[in-house]
């Protein structure tokens, strides 16, 4: 069973990108939550979660997205999602996350949406 989970957070300008890979379930979600919390505690409120290498998500993983979004938006930021493979996107859509989160095809488009929001 070559299952794993990877996470990497990168700050660039005022944007933080969190790249997820592998399997995000109840066992690995705490690591995702801790990483996001750490960046938010450091004052980072514009976040792109790049799911391009994410192969699996359960509701424990989705719960992490739910837990932070309101506070980020209240602070003038947002959490945007990019790169969902069809199987993972289906889970987001089954629960209606696509109506409440901005979801982009790739990381650049998600990052660009912050830039255009700032310009507008």
């Amino acid at each position: 069973m070559a299952e794993n989970f990877s996470i990497e957070a990168t700050d660039e300008g005022d944007l933080t990108t969190v790249a997820l890979g592998g399997y995000l379930d109840a066992h690995t979600a705490p690591e995702f939550e801790a990483t996001l919390q750490e960046r938010i505690d450091a004052g980072r409120v514009r976040i792109v979660v790049d799911c391009g290498a994410l192969e699996y998500i359960s509701s424990a993983g989705l719960g992490v997205f739910m837990g932070f979004i309101e506070d980020l938006r209240d602070a003038g930021g947002d959490l945007k999602i990019s790169g969902l493979i069809p199987k993972v996107r289906e889970v987001f859509e089954l629960l209606g996350f696509d109506a409440l989160f901005e979801i982009y095809d790739d990381r650049a488009a998600a990052a660009g949406s912050f830039a255009s929001a700032a310009a507008g």
Partner: peptide, 17 residues
């Protein structure tokens, strides 16, 4: 979902799924 998010809840979706 909107209400769960408003309440900062992180669970409550498993049974629905």
């Amino acid at each position: 979902l909107r209400e769960l998010i408003r309440q900062r809840r992180t669970g409550g979706l498993g049974m629905r799924l």
